[in-house]
Structure formats: C-alpha cells, structure tokens
Computed example of a mutant assay.
Amino acid sequence: MKIIRLAAPIALAAAVTGCSREGEISVEGGVGIQATRTACPIVGVPAGTGDITLFDPPASRDAAAIDLVGNITNVRSECSESGNDVVTTVTFDVQARRARTDAARSVTLPYFIAIVRGGTNVTAKRVGEVTINFPAGQARAQAQGSATSVVARSAATLPDEVREQLTKRRRAGEEEAAVDPLSAPGVRAAVARATFEALVGFQLTDDQLRYNATR
C-alpha cells in the first residue's frame, strides 16, 4: 500500500454530502431547506474508473482471455477540519479475481486520487499503487489503498455577501420566498468555486477506459 499526500492552495467543501450533515427543514418563520456546509470533501469514484480488467494476451478483448478483474469498493474517509488546513484521509478496498490459480501471484494495480473543484476543474492529481497478493490455489484476494490530502480552508469559504444571500430568512408569501438564490449566476458560481471533491479510481489506459465504456 502506498500513501499519497497532496498539498495544494485549495480547500475541500461539500454540500449535504460527504462529511456534511443531512439538510434540515427550516420551520422557524421561514421556508425552504437549510443545508449545512463543511470543509470536508465529497468523496467518490468517477464513472468508468472503479474497475480494471487485465487480459492475456494483453491485446485480446475476448471473454476467454480475461486474466484478472479488480474492483474498488468500500470507499470511506476521515476528515479533520481543525486549524487552517483540512486533512482528509480516503481509504478503500481493492477486490480482485484471477482466472488461473495454480501458483502464488502478486499483481500491482495503479490508482489515482484527484481533487476536483466545481465539478469539472481538476486542481490536483496523484497516482499510487496497490499490490494484490494471491496465495497458490486462491482465485480471490483483497488489499487496501489509502490517500491523504492536506489543503487550505480559505478557498472553501464563501464571500460574506454570498453567504448572506443563501442564509437570508425568507417568509412564506414574500416574493423572495419563491426565488431560489442559486438561480443567480454570481451566487451559483461562488458556490461552485467553494465546492470540492476527492475522487479515487484506477489509473486506466485509454484502451481500458474504452473497454469499461463499451462492454
């Protein structure tokens, strides 16, 4: 298992997901849903990167040529928000199944952790490796991967004027109560800039990505 450490001038944030608490209904004289933000990242696996297939021979894509299949599962995180930095450790299991079981075997699979801002902008990425050890006669094995990110909190902080628009109490019957504050382009853009994700997946080749997308 290899530990990856990220250091970037960004902070991680989540809205009603990841480490955040569930949204609460605001009923004290107002309307709408009250969402609690946190500096912890939204943690997940990007579509198409959660599994990897190795073939023998490598150029074949026949089902009979499948040598090994690996899957990322049980992704979880621990997050510390104290101080000026947000430290998040993401751990996950890699479960693998091989076709031939006659001898002991070790297989090293590459994986990545990427920090994504606003849903589209990759601000940092590192690649690590996890090794699966198969005893002789065993078709299945499992290992654990881990990655730690250390980032600044400041980028996850919304400007005061945006925070005021989002938290302003709106009473039923008032015109403002019918308007979603996130419909304002400036507010929506500010929230996106302060929202980050920590995504883990297998570091796949172009051929492996195409296989996952078309199988």
Rank of each mutant, 00 (worst) to 15 (best):
I4P: 02
A7E: 15
V16Y: 08
V16M: 08
C19G: 14
R21K: 13
E22Y: 05
E22F: 10
G23F: 01
E24D: 14
S26T: 15
G29H: 02
G32N: 08
G32Y: 06
V43I: 15
V45M: 09
D51I: 04
T53W: 04
L54I: 02
F55H: 11
P57M: 04
S60I: 06
A63N: 12
A65Y: 05
I66F: 07
D67M: 13
L68P: 04
T73G: 12
N74C: 11
V75F: 07
R76P: 01
R76I: 05
R76H: 12
E78D: 12
C79Q: 02
S80T: 11
S80G: 10
E81A: 12
S82E: 15
S82D: 15
D85V: 05
V86R: 03
T88W: 01
V90K: 05
F92K: 03
V94N: 04
Q95K: 13
A96L: 14
R98F: 11
A99P: 02
R100Y: 14
T101H: 10
T101G: 10
D102L: 13
A103G: 04
A104C: 05
S106T: 14
V107N: 12
T108N: 06
L109M: 07
R117K: 12
R117H: 08
G119K: 02
T120D: 13
T120N: 14
V122C: 10
T123W: 03
A124F: 05
A124G: 13
G128S: 09
V130Q: 02
F134P: 07
A139L: 10
R140E: 15
A141W: 11
A141K: 04
A147P: 03
V150A: 09
V150P: 00
V150H: 06
V151D: 11
V151G: 07
S154T: 09
S154F: 11
A155L: 10
A155F: 12
A156L: 04
T157A: 08
E161A: 03
E164N: 13
E164V: 06
L166V: 05
T167A: 15
R169A: 13
G173Q: 05
A177Y: 07
A178E: 12
V179Y: 01
D180G: 08
L182W: 01
S183F: 00
P185S: 00
G186T: 00
R193Q: 12
A194F: 01
A198W: 00
F202A: 05
Q203D: 15
L204P: 01
T205L: 02
D207C: 00
Q208P: 01
R210P: 00
Y211D: 12
N212W: 06
T214A: 09
